[in-house]
């Protein structure tokens, strides 16, 4: 009985492993790592209209959409759609926050869910793969911050927003985050300074007309490159340490996103 089930799941596993290769987070993983990762995923099936989670729920599971379509919304106002191989819940991977929006299935959908604890376990178990995954997640986070910056109206508000972002990124370092480790803290603070610098630089160039750097690369790619090279210089390819630093950096960025959201919600309310 057990063996039968085992065989069934392994043949199904192949399908999921193939699917994981298509997800950009996991495209660089080796087959062994993918096979291992696939063991952590829960397969969830949702009918059209079914709610996956609501705003305010604890953020414990990171989902990747395999088939179907999802809708992200806050109080009936749709924000965006999610297509297969896209994912939801990346901020929750770094910090303990409530869900910032609700998600429901538009059509019958299949989701692969992984508990954020399991993903952290995986990244520390396979730090080389973990580092790759985390860089990609950080890229998304900085993209979010970048967009937030851009979407603000071109007024005094924007300037204050940039200052605010810098302030929040600064504050992120002072906040105690879990276990204490001087080495990780030091490296994180250096990287954080570099991120802030990059944002300031970007504001200067974008005010003069063109976003991105001289090579025409998008801003967040440039940022990530810088973080990567600076991290490699400092940790000398200690991947486990890299993973820990990147997690901490992710924490700061995620916190910043959440706090920016909060502050702007307040400001908008005041204007209204």
């Amino acid at each position: 009985m057990a063996e039968k089930k085992n065989k069934k799941t392994t043949s199904k596993n192949k399908e999921y492993i193939e699917f994981l290769s298509k997800v950009n987070l996991f495209e660089n993983l080796s087959l062994f790592e993918k096979r291992n990762l696939a063991e952590y995923f829960y397969v969830r099936k949702y009918k059209a209209g079914e709610i996956v989670f609501k705003k305010g729920y604890p953020n414990v599971v990171f989902y990747i959409l395999k088939d179907g379509e999802l809708k992200v919304y806050i109080e009936n106002a749709e924000i965006r759609r999610i297509k297969p191989t896209e994912y939801i819940g990346e901020i929750g991977l770094f910090i303990d926050v409530e869900r910032t929006a609700s998600v429901s299935a538009v059509t019958d959908s299949v989701l692969l869910g992984i508990s954020k604890k399991d993903l952290e376990k995986f990244t520390l178990k396979f730090p080389r793969a973990g580092e790759d995954i985390l860089y990609k997640l950080l890229k998304i986070l900085s993209e979010n911050i970048f967009k937030m910056n851009k979407d603000l109206p071109e007024t005094d508000n924007k300037k204050s927003a940039n200052l605010l972002l810098q302030q929040i990124l600064h504050d992120g370092l002072q906040k105690p985050t879990g276990k204490k480790s001087k080495k990780i803290d030091n490296i994180t603070s250096i990287l954080n300074e570099e991120i802030i610098e990059k944002f300031v630089e970007n504001d200067r160039t974008s005010s003069s007309g063109n976003s991105g750097n001289k090579n025409g690369e998008p801003f967040q790619d440039d940022l990530l490159k810088k973080i990567r090279s600076s991290l490699e210089k400092r940790t000398k390819f200690n991947f486990r340490l890299n993973v820990k630093v990147l997690y901490k950096l992710g924490k700061i960025l995620s916190n910043s996103i959440i706090e920016m959201n909060k502050k702007f919600e307040k400001q908008e309310n005041e204007v209204l």
Binding site: T9, E39, Y42, R44, Y46, Y57, V60, V61
Partner: peptide
């Protein structure tokens, strides 16, 4: 992990995240 997945696959969507938590 297989046992866990089998157990959790029996839990309905409404209670899935809750039980993981």
């Amino acid at each position: 992990r297989l046992f866990l997945r089998i157990i959790f696959s029996k839990i309905s969507n409404r209670y899935f995240e809750f039980s993981i938590h």
